[in-house]
Design a binder for these strands. Structure first.
Lengths: 210, 210
DNA sequence: CAGAAGCCGTGACATATATCACAGCAGGGA
DNA sequence: TCCCTGCTGTGATATATGTCACGGCTTCTG
């Protein structure tokens, strides 16, 4: 398989680095719903999304999940970008939301790239900055807002990332990802619907204005 | 003023970079309670703590604050480490908890250092990684835990960072930083006291076992 | 078709947390 | 001394959210 077709995702990377990515990396396909990285699992590879959509979750000891953010094509998993040979345990869980294609590079190589390629550490630093800011927004939503606003924030992020007004999500899923309960989401969804902000479809939600 | 006395804080930095820090940076003193960086303010300087303790907050539009984490001597403010000349607006507020001494370097210089000095970008990347993980823990505490556990987490962090079992904090302060209310903290504190986990002093809290 | 599984909606209730009202206590300054 | 300020404690109450119990609706599968 060839990385050239994904060239547009990384316009800034220099040629030699591009060749290394092609040589050292494997291109892997993932099915919808597949877990790419499990909390606690050792990180041996840097993961970069080429196609499809990946969700990152924080997990607690009881297996509850909390949605952090999406990775889109061109995005790398921040934590997996900085790993020395000690193979840190992952602090997050990553799941494919759609069928996805990933670039997987053993951390032995990416560690060296940090020294060799200026554009690589720009990529790494840029990724951290972006995700750090995204976490801040996530903190805002839980620290300062009630569940109704958190739900709206959740829906907006999904609409923006997926680029569609129709979200194929069940209330049960949403409840898990917001660490709430199905019943609560159900009632709030009804309110949103009555307020004309969404329309409830038979298997999904259409966002009208949010 | 001289940076040499803080040499031990940055054992890994190479000599030329150390000299640049000395030349380009200013050493600034801050009083207890002083606001070093305000949400929304443009970031013109990279800030590194040399002495004392600094608290970082996330702020919402109504002026409510939410405690994120501490900066200790040797720590840099993550967001201020990556700033180009566009002078991004700060996403956080920083306050001195004690009298503090800071190293302040205009971002024009640090931007170049990213390219010139390997140890500098190691410092930057390490800082981001550390703070990212710290934010994840903060998210855990709000997403998965009730206020009583959040309070314990808050107290533990303060004990560990300050290195003392006696915290000079008022319930009012704690309530603000957890985005709760004084009365709630007061009641929970009573419970902690009854459980023998803390002792309430006349102006502070002594942590017995947490 | 029958039954199972998964989803949804909803009323009743429990609990955590926020808010309000008020009183007490200590310290500082006029 | 007296007042003011800031902190604390606590009961009463309101609100948001979580939990339980139930029934109804699809869809799948044997």
């Amino acid at each position: 398989m060839n990385l050239d077709q994904y060239r547009h995702l990384f316009p800034e990377l220099e040629e030699p680095l591009r060749r290394e990515l092609q040589e050292k990396g494997r291109i892997v396909e993932a099915k919808t719903g597949q877990v790419l990285l499990q909390t606690g699992q050792n990180i041996r590879n840097t993961i970069i999304v080429l196609e499809g959509l990946v969700k990152l979750f924080r997990e607690d000891d009881q297996g509850d999940e909390f949605f952090m953010y999406h990775l889109e094509p061109g995005d790398g998993c921040a934590l997996s970008l900085i790993c020395d040979r000690s193979h840190h345990a992952s602090a997050v869980t990553a799941k494919a939301v759609t069928d996805a294609i990933l670039l997987v590079v053993p951390v032995e190589h990416t560690e060296n790239w940090m020294r060799q390629y200026r554009t690589w550490y720009h990529f790494v630093v840029g990724t951290y900055r972006k995700r750090y800011l995204e976490l801040l927004e996530t903190i805002d939503s839980i620290a300062f807002h009630n569940m109704d606003e958190r739900l709206e924030f959740y829906l907006r992020r999904h609409r923006d990332t997926l680029g569609t007004n129709v979200l194929q999500l069940t209330n049960t899923e949403i409840a898990q990802e917001l660490n709430s309960s199905r019943e609560v989401i159900s009632r709030l969804m009804k309110k949103l619907s009555e307020a004309g902000k969404v329309r409830l479809l038979k298997n999904g939600i259409e966002i009208l204005r949010l």
